[in-house]
Nucleic acid binder design. Structure first.
Length: 256
DNA sequence: AGGTGTTTAGGTTCTA
DNA sequence: TAGAACCTAAACACCT
């Protein structure tokens, strides 16, 4: 079976929904998070069809990002300002596609009210912390209510951007999501090791292909955990320089 | 100003 | 055939 190439669909509309295309883009990135502009770029790079009528499909795509609980907006890390947030896939959304096929979902991914509220609260606390961090760096006192409580001071999830763009997999190769353990999508939960049997190894950018896409090596820590840990370490380092002698967060969590 | 994000609304296509 | 999933359009607010 010949492997479909990048231009397989030519100017024809690919059979993937916007949710699938967005999931592909996010999944193709090393950190499993992308800003909107990078999601656009992934799609237009890969599918010539989407080089036209950009306003139309980009509007639809943004609608899907906001509307579907399977996509989670993660605030930018404070030292990497820019437009828009990062978007990632909710971990529990990995199995929403039938047999891993991206062609059609088996069911809409919907968070329960409580889950959604918790997630929103944590992300809001993260955004507040980022704002406070920026304010402090700019020399202005941070607004007290914006500072997260000690219990909320957990490493944010913003990605460590790789200087090079993510290696983009062949679109047609992304037909399966790896199996992932279900876990709560809280910052704390994401910082927990994936499993006690893990033997941490350095993160490798995932190059997806038919051969490599179906499963992740679960002996690797989750990309979310790695990103959060790296970010946490960097933030503490920055805080030691920029925030002294003012606010310093509680002792760091161990960084793998 | 332009990009990003949210929401609403109405239509089409697919599946059980 | 009904309901779910999906697509499109549009209006609006916010942010850089």
């Amino acid at each position: 079976m010949p492997r479909p190439s990048r231009e397989s669909y030519g100017d024809q509309k690919p059979p993937y929904s916007y949710i699938s295309l967005t999931a592909m883009a996010i999944w193709s990135s090393p950190e499993r998070m992308l800003p909107l502009s990078e999601i656009y770029r992934f799609i237009t790079d890969r599918f010539p069809y989407y080089r036209r009528n950009t306003q139309r499909w980009q509007n639809s795509l943004r609608h899907n990002l906001s509307f579907n609980d399977c996509f989670v907006k993660v605030p930018r890390r404070p030292d990497r300002p820019g437009k828009g947030a990062y978007w990632t896939l909710h971990p529990q959304a990995f199995d929403m596609f039938e047999n891993g096929s991206l062609l059609r979902r088996r069911k809409r991914f919907k968070l329960q009210k409580g889950e959604k509220d918790n997630l929103n609260a944590e992300l809001a606390a993260l955004a507040s912390f980022n704002r406070a961090f920026l304010a402090r760096q700019a020399g202005a006192p941070p607004p007290p209510p914006a500072m997260p409580s000690a219990s909320l001071y957990t490493p944010p999830l913003c990605p460590q951007l790789s200087p090079e763009p993510a290696e983009i997999p062949e679109a047609a190769a992304i037909t399966m999501f790896p199996q992932r353990p279900r876990r709560a999508f809280t910052i704390e939960a994401l910082l927990e090791p994936d499993s006690p049997r893990l033997s941490p190894s350095p993160p490798q950018p995932q190059v997806m292909s038919i051969a490599t896409m179906p499963r992740l090596d679960l002996s690797m820590p989750s990309p979310y955990v790695l990103a959060a840990q790296r970010y946490h370490a960097e933030l503490l380092q920055a805080a030691a320089h920029a925030l002294r002698p003012c606010y310093l967060p509680p002792p760091p969590l161990p960084v793998a």
